[in-house]
């Protein structure tokens, strides 16, 4: 309870100071609207805000599933084929920290300005952290556990399902937490680059019309979406990788 109350108080105090400072110093509402103005923009346009946020979250989640799923399967294939690993892995490590969003215009060019280009963008940025983490988790297995399995003449399928995959789960979930945040960023960048809907499009157009309170409301909405997505992954981590938690 305390872990929620204390940061929530910080937020309320910040909003309060922001509101008071706006009154006292007469901020230009186009540059920095007050929290109350943002709230009223939200009240006026909430249906649209929810709809556009929903679209962006849909793109993010689909891209995330595609990217993370593909990455995990590729990581499993590394266990079976050294050649695939040697051919692909160095690039995966390099691309993990490359700003892939730089290719967003290219994706819009290839996949159009509908949701497909955003899904691909999300999938790409979700892919690499999951691949690198999963590959680590599938291979960094206690050598004694492998000896134990070998002494029992376990098949490679048994080693995979009874040792490697369970061992990889904590690494996988850590990767999914990173990927969930990245996927939302990817979708929004895709929308900035070229889109007809989605929260990125809303933020872009309201910037064009100098509707700054709506911009802020849009930013708040997609932040909330990202936090919920991340929170879901953190929750799953706690449930699935229960043996890593302290007693």
């Amino acid at each position: 309870m305390r872990t929620i109350l204390v940061p929530a108080t910080t937020l309320l105090m910040l909003l309060f100071c922001w509101q008071v400072a706006g009154r006292v110093f007469h901020f230009n509402r186009v540059i920095l609207p007050s929290p109350v103005e943002i709230a009223s923009a939200f009240a006026k346009d909430y249906a649209r805000l929810f709809r556009e946020t929903g679209i962006t979250m849909e793109e993010s989640v689909l891209g995330f599933i595609l990217g993370a799923g593909g990455a995990y399967l590729l990581a499993v294939s590394f266990v079976y084929s050294r050649i695939i690993q040697e051919a692909v892995y160095p690039y995966a490590v390099a691309l993990k920290s490359t700003p892939l969003i730089a290719i967003a215009p290219l994706l819009v060019l290839w996949f159009g300005n509908g949701i497909l280009s955003k899904i691909v963008m999300s999938a790409l940025v979700a892919f690499f952290p999951v691949l690198v983490n999963s590959a680590n988790g599938l291979t960094s297995v206690d050598p004694d556990a492998l000896d134990l399995m070998k002494s029992l003449s376990a098949s490679s399928w048994q080693v995979l399902t009874k040792i490697r995959i369970p061992n990889s789960l904590s690494y996988l979930l850590a990767g999914l937490k990173i990927a969930s945040s990245m996927a939302v960023v990817g979708a929004v960048i895709g929308e900035f680059t070229g889109a007809t809907e989605g929260i990125g499009h809303l933020i872009n157009t309201s910037s064009y019309y100098l509707e700054t309170p709506l911009m802020f409301a849009g930013v708040a909405m997609i932040s909330l979406g990202g936090i919920l997505f991340f929170g879901l992954m953190a929750y799953l981590e706690k449930k699935i990788v229960f043996w890593k938690q302290s007693q």
Partner: peptide, 11 residues
């Protein structure tokens, strides 16, 4: 085999 570490699977 019994190793120095118990090698029990934590899950």
């Amino acid at each position: 085999f019994v190793f120095q570490n118990p090698v029990l699977l934590p899950w």
